[in-house]
Nucleic acid binder design. Sequence first.
DNA 1: TTGAAAGCGTTACCAG
DNA 2: CTGGTAACGCTTTCAA
Lengths: 354, 354
Amino acid sequence: MRPTLQTVADAVGVSRSTVSNAYSNPDQLSTELRERIFEVARQIGYPGPNPAARTLRRGRAGAIGVLFTDSLPYAFIDPYAVQFLRGISEAAERYDSGLLLVPLAGDEKAGVHAVQNAAVDGFCVYCVPEWHWATSAIRARGLPIVTSEQHDSSRPDMFYVGIDERAAARAAAAHLVALGHRRVALLSDYVVPERVNALVTIASPEEVRYYTAGERLRGFRDAFAEAGVAWADISVLSAAGNSREHGARAAAYALDRADRPTAILAATDLLALGVLDALAVRGLRAGHDVSVTGFDDIADAASAGLTTIRQDPIERGRRSGELLLDPPDDPAQRRVVLPTELVVRASTGPAPRS
Amino acid sequence: MRPTLQTVADAVGVSRSTVSNAYSNPDQLSTELRERIFEVARQIGYPGPNPAARTLRRGRAGAIGVLFTDSLPYAFIDPYAVQFLRGISEAAERYDSGLLLVPLAGDEKAGVHAVQNAAVDGFCVYCVPEWHWATSAIRARGLPIVTSEQHDSSRPDMFYVGIDERAAARAAAAHLVALGHRRVALLSDYVVPERVNALVTIASPEEVRYYTAGERLRGFRDAFAEAGVAWADISVLSAAGNSREHGARAAAYALDRADRPTAILAATDLLALGVLDALAVRGLRAGHDVSVTGFDDIADAASAGLTTIRQDPIERGRRSGELLLDPPDDPAQRRVVLPTELVVRASTGPAPRS
DNA sequence: TTGAAAGCGTTACCAG
DNA sequence: CTGGTAACGCTTTCAA
């Protein structure tokens, strides 16, 4: 039989509570007794308090959950996600907390089960909109959530760490406007419900259901509208997923047309790098024949000479974790908006005169 | 008061077991009753079975633990570690299991506590030697471990997924031997107990306490010994950590000497890339003035033209996860040795005649 | 400083 | 298919 607290207590000749205190409240007993208890525990092979029992009794798990809309491995594929996790892990480590990555794979039923089964004290969600069933599943458990999406800000259990998506996107677009670009294409995933690489028609950015994609499109639109370019005259490309490959494939729908745009604004660096790949294949020069902007400023952006919007995913993760592990009393502090910055590199240049 | 199984049972007018079965053993009751139970649960706001209670009762956590000797954020800094985690996460997702990253930060006491507190069914450890206290802490809990290090193979609770470190390192060294290199330096972290960048003296690779570092040094030695180069004539560089920066700094101790080696063999790609940085700073040409080899074949190795040993971290992670989540009955299958391959690129070339 | 008692919320077993 | 009983292993009053 596996030894328990009781076994140790019996062997030492004290009560359960005393052994429990030895582990969890060292100042409640004499040092000698404590040492004696540990000594006996070692001899018997007692592994220390059972985590599940402890969590059950205490009502605290000592771990924070992390949730991705995409499959779990995506967390380690997208460089932005990796940095975000790195930030969370810094916070977790500081608060002696674990990090539980919860698989949302498969259908809704399996995902809800995964959320319900997670022994955690709260969730950091990544790219999970408020209307997503995962959000409801977490709320049903009464656990706090840190999100970077739009949400009902009156809820005391939802924290926010994000950036001004719209203003940041607008800055990228304004940069291109200043360079004289008027015939442009926007490229993003999650603009339409289907996961396809295609040229799509969207009445307005308002109809995009995903927050981040919608906001960035809105920001792009704002800047061009100000320059007199109507939304209807802007091409929108849908990417089937956030990867270089999808970016390259989706870009083809704009690059191979007669009225090729002079600039392509991508919603992420990964997609933008794909556009650069597509340009290279066609013998087109980035920043010359076609200008390209990204978003995030991941590590590869610099070496690729990509003009982009810089944000700090590590800081974002760190603040998210801190909010969850040490919630400030002041509601105003539960909303963190981080700065962004336009980084101009070689992938953008004056619009070619046609 | 928060609703529990009991609350729901009372409201529906059935027993606890029936409600429990509705969630965990759907085939134990009629579909209508099941639906009715869920309906009532939703109305009451019952969040589903409490994970801690379930784990306690079932004796299964539904998560696997991951442990790094280094700090938690390291998992997201080292590109090899990221890929390894990606592999584990693929396995976890397939088995509907979570992934708990356990912080080993700070001192031994805190680390042991973290291990004891982790609600998991087993551990994948990364760079944790068998003699490390973390190993004992896991064993004390009676949980299975997957390691990639040397270990007591008679233990039924230790699984192994790794590569033939020594043979792989030997292949890299043999390649340099064939190119005529005889005055060489080896570069690795964990060769001495201190975390320093320095030229160190090691009587033989056998005295290196860390398995991976030791094996790779042994492999290097083997190949050069065969070519008549004595261990005493080989410089050993210690890196304070596994990063480009440390690699570059440690390399300085060989590159700035009068009897500069014609080749540097690094124990990881990250260190090797640092060596390339150090060469560039000095105006030396890799593969010409000084040859460099790495180990792992991370993504950046290809673009840097680094000759290296390729191994597949994703596969390694995947197999590790599978072993833990679905242990084969046959003990022979609990030991997986994955293949490696020498990839020759531009960073190695014939030894310059001096 | 110690100990007795009362759960924490669930699931396994077994008889009906 | 249903329901009672008995754990699972611990922490937390509160009184001694």
